[in-house]
């Protein structure tokens, strides 16, 4: 197990270096002087000269990359062009709201998708299956920002029940936080629910055909016990794989959902920074999101080893 973990961690190094290279090169692709891009148009000459020296802009590109990487590893992501705040604390403060929103969306999606997928599979080719499968396909085809806008239209404009957007800390105002969480979490959770339901259904169909399920039925076990203890337990692996992929989707999905609902997480921070041409923040956010994504994928692989002991041996 320890060896497996070490091997998986080792394989992350080239990927993380690659993502850092992409984040580094992104800023170099911005037309013009990278120092101006990073400090903004209004920067004075001494600051520009200082940054040029720090970025080693007179050195070859690979020297520039490594000196930038060294700074990143020390936690120096530079300063935001707007207001001059350090990028790292800015990113850190946006992580909380994003994590809360993602967790709520994931919870909503699982509560809907797992029962729906299991029911669709156990009642294959019945009305319930067709209905669940069709709703899932529609959910998959629904652009999330449109769903978000429709929810605002219905629950904030037509029936003024919930706030259309914004955020308060759950520590300050728990009820206000929950009221503002509902619409974005449903918006983000809907698309996840759709693909989780489809995967649950497919995985269950596969398992329900297997010999041990037939044996369990033949032994006279209660149908619900066969479905949940025998079949579902073994259908979890593809579902966990999908959940891992979905965490990545979540990190992308929050970009849109947070923008629609003015939710001050990492996604909204990224979009705002893009429009303000606040490249240090864009660079930091891209790097952080990619690193999170890679780590989540690692976590998914580790969860396999818990669910399925066969993976450990392989």
């Amino acid at each position: 197990m320890g060896r497996y973990l070490l091997g998986r961690l080792g394989s992350l190094v080239p990927i993380l270096l690659g993502t850092s290279l992409v984040a580094f090169l992104l800023i170099r692709l911005v037309p013009g002087d990278p120092a101006v891009a990073l400090l903004g148009m209004e920067a004075d000459d001494t600051a520009l000269a200082a940054l040029r020296a720090k970025l080693a802009l007179d050195q070859p590109l690979w020297v520039q990359y490594f000196s930038w990487l060294a700074a990143i590893l020390k936690g120096d992501f530079g300063r935001s062009i707007q207001g001059g705040r350090e990028v790292l604390p800015l990113l850190a403060s946006a992580l909380g709201p994003t994590a809360l929103l993602s967790a709520a969306a994931l919870a909503i999606s699982l509560v809907i998708a797992i029962p729906a997928g299991v029911i669709a599979a156990t009642r294959r080719n019945t009305g319930a299956d067709y209905a669940a499968s069709f709703v899932a396909l529609c959910g998959l085809s629904l652009p999330s920002f449109w769903l978000g806008i429709l929810l605002i239209l219905l629950f904030s404009v037509q029936i003024p029940l919930l706030p259309a957007s914004g955020y308060v800390s759950p520590l300050v105002d728990p009820a206000g936080f929950l009221a503002r969480l509902v619409l974005p979490a449903v918006t983000l959770g809907a698309a996840l629910a759709a693909s989780t339901m489809r995967m649950t259904r497919a995985a269950m169909l596969e398992v329900l055909r297997s010999d041990y399920v037939r044996t369990a039925r033949a032994k006279g076990l209660a149908p619900s016990r066969v479905v949940w203890r025998h079949a579902f337990a073994n259908a979890q692996i593809p579902i966990v794989t999908l959940l891992g992929i979905q965490m990545g989707q979540l990190l992308g999905g929050v970009v849109i959902t947070e923008t629609v609902f003015a939710w001050p997480g990492i996604g909204k921070l990224t979009v705002d920074a893009i429009f303000a041409r606040d490249y240090p923040v864009v660079q930091g956010a891209v790097l952080l999101t990619a690193a999170l994504f890679v780590l989540i994928n690692l976590a998914t692989d580790l969860v396999y080893t818990v669910i399925d002991p066969r993976v450990r041996v392989a």
Binding site: I15, L16, G18, T19, G252, G253, V294
Partner: peptide
């Protein structure tokens, strides 16, 4: 390709 895959696609 792995590196390109390491980013959420929308981002």
């Amino acid at each position: 390709m792995d590196v390109l895959f390491a980013f959420p696609s929308i981002l």
